[in-house]
Each structure stands twice: as structure tokens, then as C-alpha cells.
Nucleic acid binder design. Structure first.
Length: 285
RNA sequence: GCUGAGGUGCCGGAGUGGUCAAUCGGUGCAGACUGUAAAUCUGCCGCCCUAACGGGCUACCCAGGUUCGAAUCCUGGCCUCAGCA
């Protein structure tokens, strides 16, 4: 089975730095699994790490305005992985978008169903109740499989209706990877500190990158209010850092349930060695 | 010092005699997640007991008062803000 190394975890734990190190050691290439770093430009805003000479796959693949989703990611990432394997190198997938990672390594059938703009548009302003009724009508089965939270989530309801009404439901093939999942974590207080530092470092450059019309990206709102003179740098900085911190906690919630992840605490001084040992054992096996 | 506005739970901010532990938003905590996932959504969120239903306690600046009953009305005090000095 082809090996891929996955490095995941919340933001600001040093995933990319670690991945770059491992790439050197094991002749690997990085693939970013990050839903915002796919956008061209916005390096500081989305925290792209270009400190090394090696290119990172799936950075800068689309313009900020254009459509991009898990399905695009999976397609691109899989073809890049095939390519890297062809060149006898090790793909190292690094990123914090948990859903992308899950989709990459499992088979999600509904991913074959593309968005239906007409349908989305038709339901855009529909009330929650009418969406619920519509889904129960077109697919009681799907409705029944949704949990209580999703049953109240308009976006998920519309997507469920979209999938239910599509003819293109093709079962997907589960990829066969020998994947090693390395998770990087840190105590919350440390995470908060690292986020604050990172945001401060990137602030000025990010401020020059923001503009109207960008997709939802953490920090844009506070940076714009700063560049427009509606808030001080200090305020904008604090707000942006806080948003990142909240995001980090959401990431932790997601990754918690992925039981195949081997966790390493970066506040632990022997963390680096531990990861190295773990990777070595897996890779040379 | 005068005039006007106002002091509500961690924060913002509703409520203006009972149905108020107090709408709503944010934060916080827990969680969901199968093409927007850095998105979207759910639950809980004064304290104590309870698995829950429910019950008890303390609360709307402070002190008095009116009333069967006050976050809501009255009096006094303290503080904040805006304008005038």
C-alpha cells in the first residue's frame, strides 16, 4: 500500500515546520489541506509558510472569489499524491481542515453530486420549516439519518435535498493508503500565546492583502476595520487573534473524534524526537 | 456648579408594577459535521439539590419607602456620560 503521511492539528502548532523537516529527511513533498490557503495571494492572511525552498502543493490553486470545496480538494490532492508516488517520494499532507483530510482518506459518496445553483437559489430564502418539510418529502430516509443539529441547519438541509434529488449519486471508491496520522497539539494557554504572536507577525502584510469581496477568512473583518481607520491596530490585532483562537478550539473538537491520530504535544521538549521515531518506525516498516 | 441622559447577569443591550433568573446578541463550555468546513449548525450557560420533571436561594448601583406584589413607582445618596459653565 502506498504511504502517505498526514500532519494535522489546530492552527499555530507548527505543522508546516514539522512537515518541512520530515520532507527533507524522508524525501517528501508537502500538500496543504487547508481550505483557505488554496486561494492565490493572501499569504499572510491565511498563514502560508514559504520559509523553505520546496513548493507546497495546493497552495494558490484558485482565485479568492471562485468556487472551491472539499470535492475540488479531494480531486486535486489525489492526483498530486499519485504524481508524488510516481516520483517515488513521500506525500506529506499537512493541514487543519479536518473535513478535507477525512474526505481525502475515505469515500464520501455524495461528493459526486455537484451543487445545483438553481435549486440552491430557489431555497436560498426558504424558512427552516419549509426546508425540513421538503427534505422529509423528497427523502424521509436522509432526513431520518440527520442528527438534530443538522436538521436545524439550513445549509445542510439544502445540500441534503440537492443530493436526494440528484441522479448522479455514484458510490465512491475508498482510497487505499497506508496513512500515518500525526496530530500536533498544545495546551490551550500556549496555543493562545502562539496564535497571538503569529497574528502580530503577519498583521502588517495581511492588512495590505485584505480587500472587499473576499471569501470568509478569519481576520478580514478586523483588518478591514483597521485599514479603514475604524479601529486601532491593537484592537484589530486582539480581535483577529481571538477569532483564530476560537477556530483552534473548533479544530480540536473535530480532531478529537479521529481516533487514528497519534497525538504529540508540542509543549513537550521531546516532541520532535517522539514524532521522528514514530515516523521512522512507520516509514521503514 | 447647572441642565439633560443613564446605571440590568462575564460583556453589549432589551425589559418599565405581577406570567422575570430576567428577550436578544457576543463570550464561555460541550457537541455536530458526507461539495460553502477559517463555513454552517445544535445544546447548556446566577448559585444549590435533581438523571429529569421540579424545588430552594440570591439577584437588575446603594439605602429607605409605596404596594398583596418592584428590575419596573417614590425619596435620598453614590457613580457615569453629554451639553452649558
Amino acid at each position: 500500500m502506498k504511504k502517505i503521511l498526514i500532519i494535522c492539528g489546530p492552527t499555530a502548532t507548527g505543522k508546516t515546520a514539522l512537515a518541512l523537516k520530515l520532507a527533507k529527511q524522508w524525501n517528501g513533498e508537502l500538500i496543504s489541506a487547508d481550505s483557505r490557503q488554496v486561494y492565490k495571494g493572501l499569504d499572510a492572511l491565511t498563514g502560508k509558510d514559504r520559509s523553505d525552498d520546496g513548493a507546497v502543493w495546493l497552495y494558490d490553486v484558485v482565485e479568492p472569489g471562485s468556487e472551491f470545496s472539499v470535492a475540488h480538494f479531494v480531486r486535486l490532492a489525489r492526483s498530486v499524491i499519485v504524481d508524488i508516488h510516481k516520483r517515488k517520494k513521500l506525500p506529506i499532507v499537512v493541514g487543519g481542515t479536518g473535513f478535507y483530510l477525512t474526505a481525502l482518506t475515505t469515500a464520501i459518496d455524495s461528493l459526486a453530486v455537484p451543487p445545483n445553483p438553481a435549486l440552491r437559489n430557489a431555497f436560498h430564502a426558504a424558512s427552516l420549516e419549509s426546508l425540513q418539510q421538503e427534505l422529509q418529502r423528497v427523502s424521509p430516509d436522509r432526513w431520518g439519518r440527520m442528527n438534530e443539529s443538522d436538521q436545524k441547519n439550513p445549509r445542510r438541509l439544502i445540500r441534503a435535498i440537492e443530493v436526494a434529488m440528484s441522479a448522479k449519486y455514484i458510490p465512491q471508491v475508498r482510497p487505499h493508503f497506508d496513512a500515518l496520522w500525526i496530530g500536533l497539539i498544545a495546551p490551550l494557554a500556549m496555543l493562545k500565546q502562539r496564535i497571538t504572536n503569529r497574528v502580530a507577525e503577519r498583521f502588517d502584510k495581511a492588512a495590505s492583502e485584505v480587500r472587499d469581496g473576499l471569501p470568509p477568512i478569519l481576520g478580514v473583518a478586523s483588518l478591514l476595520s483597521f485599514t479603514r481607520g475604524q479601529s486601532t491596530k491593537k484592537e484589530a490585532l486582539a480581535k483577529w487573534a481571538w477569532a483564530e483562537y476560537q477556530y483552534a478550539k473548533r479544530q480540536v473538537t473535530w480532531f478529537k473524534k479521529e481516533k487514528h491520530i497519534q497525538w504529540f504535544d508540542v509543549s513537550d521538549t521531546s516532541c520532535g524526537e517522539a514524532v521522528a521515531a514514530c515516523v521512522t518506525a512507520w516509514y521503514t516498516n
